[in-house]
Lab assay of single mutants.
Amino acid sequence: TEEYTYTDKEKADRAAKEWANRGYTVTVTQDGPTYRVRVG
């Protein structure tokens, strides 16, 4: 499991979509002003 942190919702959504397109399980959680994209 890897985790990426973004401050921009659009970038987080785009990253999540790209990982999902590659067949990974993706979870996006909002943590205050940041968005965490957990992959795998």
Rank of each mutant, 00 (worst) to 15 (best):
D31M: 08
T34V: 15
K9V: 06
Q30G: 05
P33K: 11
T1K: 07
A16D: 01
G40E: 15
E18W: 15
A12E: 00
R14E: 13
K9P: 09
Y4S: 04
D13T: 10
E3K: 04
V26A: 06
E2I: 15
V39K: 03
V26H: 00
K9E: 05
N21L: 13
T5E: 10
E2D: 11
E18R: 10
Y4Q: 04
T7H: 11
N21A: 14
Y6C: 02
Y6E: 01
T5R: 08
V37K: 00
R22P: 01
E3S: 07
A20K: 12
D8H: 06
D8W: 04
T5N: 07
N21H: 09
T29V: 13
W19Y: 06
A15E: 06
W19T: 01
K17L: 13
A12W: 02
A16W: 04
Q30D: 05
K9N: 04
A15W: 06
E10I: 10
D8K: 05
Y35L: 03
Y24H: 05
D8M: 05
Y24I: 03
Y35S: 02
T27C: 13
V26D: 00
G32P: 07
E18M: 13
G40R: 14
T5S: 08
T29F: 14
E18K: 08
T27N: 07
Y35C: 02
R14G: 07
G40K: 13
T7I: 10
W19E: 01
T5D: 06
K17D: 08
A16I: 06
A15V: 10
G40D: 13
V39F: 05
T29Q: 07
W19N: 01
A12R: 02
E10P: 05
R22Y: 06
G32R: 01
E2T: 15
Y35M: 03
T27Q: 08
V39P: 03
K17Y: 11
E10Q: 10
N21E: 14
G32E: 02
D31K: 06
G32T: 02
E2A: 14
T5W: 13
V28A: 03
T7D: 13
T34L: 15
D13P: 00
T34A: 08
V28D: 00
G23I: 01
R22K: 13
G23E: 02
V39Y: 03
P33E: 14
Y24V: 03
V28Y: 04
V26R: 00
Y4A: 04
K11R: 10
V39T: 03
Y24Q: 03
Y24T: 01
Y35Q: 01
V37I: 08
A16E: 04
V37P: 00
V28N: 02
T27W: 09
T29Y: 14
A20D: 04
